[in-house]
């Protein structure tokens, strides 16, 4: 575990904690973005370039923006009246996070004995990922693609109906 790991891990944790604890929703969203960025850096540290950059592209470039749009469009972005910085529901958020962490930790611990104890750094190139997606995992990929297309069409239909109703 290098020094860089601790710095990045601390950043990620701080971002995640701030996302749970802060009162202002937009601040929470921005803190969540910091956590995403820290996660991407952790991936990069593990030499998983593709996943790391995909994390940045998808989570910071799209999911964070989506969250922000959702907050702004639901009038929750108004500044809270009280001068408190921290959210009052932080206990619930923390409990939820702890529960998720417990489940994930349990899953990881259960799976750990089955993993090969290879220390050598894997050299997975983007090309290999691409080949694997197009070869061995083509069926899951296509199913996911179908699902996403269905979601896209569904979103368009919802939007279209709303527009007709407005007229």
């Amino acid at each position: 575990m290098s020094f860089a790991f601790y710095v990045v891990a601390a950043l990620t944790l701080a971002g995640g904690l701030a996302a749970v604890l802060l009162k202002n929703l937009v601040h929470c969203a921005l803190a969540l973005t910091v956590a995403f960025a820290g996660l991407a850096l952790l991936f990069l540290q593990l030499d998983a370039q593709f996943v790391g950059f995909a994390q940045i592209l998808v989570y910071i470039g799209a999911v964070a923006i989506l969250v922000v749009f959702a907050i702004l469009l639901t009038r929750a972005s108004e500044t809270p009246k009280s001068s408190e910085i921290f959210s009052r529901t932080w206990l619930a958020g923390l409990a939820l996070a702890a529960a998720v962490f417990a489940v994930m930790g349990w899953a990881v611990l259960q799976a750990a004995p089955g993993l090969p104890h290879v220390i050598a750094a894997p050299t997975v190139t983007v090309q290999e990922i691409g080949a694997a997606l197009m070869g061995r995992y083509v069926l899951p990929l296509e199913i996911v693609a179908l699902l996403l297309t269905a979601a896209l069409i569904g979103a368009v239909i919802v939007a279209m109906h709303e527009k007709e109703g407005a007229r």
Binding site: Q49, F53, S77
Partner: peptide, 25 residues
């Protein structure tokens, strides 16, 4: 010179959107 440099470039390009939101909000 990394393997996924094009992806890296677009990832960085996508991060600028957030700064614009930060400025505006």
């Amino acid at each position: 010179d990394m393997d996924a440099s094009l992806l890296f470039f677009f990832a960085m390009g996508a991060s600028t959107e957030l700064s614009i939101f930060m400025a505006g909000w």
